[in-house]
């Protein structure tokens, strides 16, 4: 069984579950299984066309699935899959323009 690690900010949509065990063969199937179990988390992981959102990255161990086979990456029994939200931001653009 592979294990998915759910990021803390999304656990309010998974009944506070931090991990999710799965026998799914691919990442795509594992995420489908997770979102079937916890429908509220779906919109935070997938976009309108059912693809993983651009602000969400998925890692198998320390490998980004984009450097593997993407959503078709196959899972082995001992794999730990991390769902990783992008953490980024910055300052206002507007206030800076007053100095330009």
């Amino acid at each position: 069984m592979a294990q998915l690690i759910i990021p803390t900010p999304l656990r309010k949509y998974t009944e506070n579950a931090a991990t999710f065990n799965t026998d799914s063969i691919t990442i795509e199937q594992a995420i489908e299984e997770l979102t079937t179990e916890y429908p509220d988390v779906k919109q935070h992981l997938l976009d309108g066309s059912g693809k993983i959102r651009s602000f969400i990255k998925v890692f198998v161990g320390e490998e980004d699935i984009r450097s593997l086979a993407g959503e078709q990456t196959e899972l082995k029994d001992s794999d730990v899959v991390s769902i990783v939200p992008a953490i980024a931001g910055g300052t206002y653009d507007l206030l800076l323009t007053t100095h330009d």
Partner: peptide, 26 residues
């Protein structure tokens, strides 16, 4: 529980960039 960051020469008001990528709960 969250993330901190600084706004050099700017007020401590969350920006449009902060909002765009913000996660729930944090």
């Amino acid at each position: 529980l969250g993330v901190y960051h600084s706004h050099p020469q700017h007020p401590a008001i969350a920006s449009e960039h902060d909002l765009k990528q913000a996660m729930p709960y944090f």
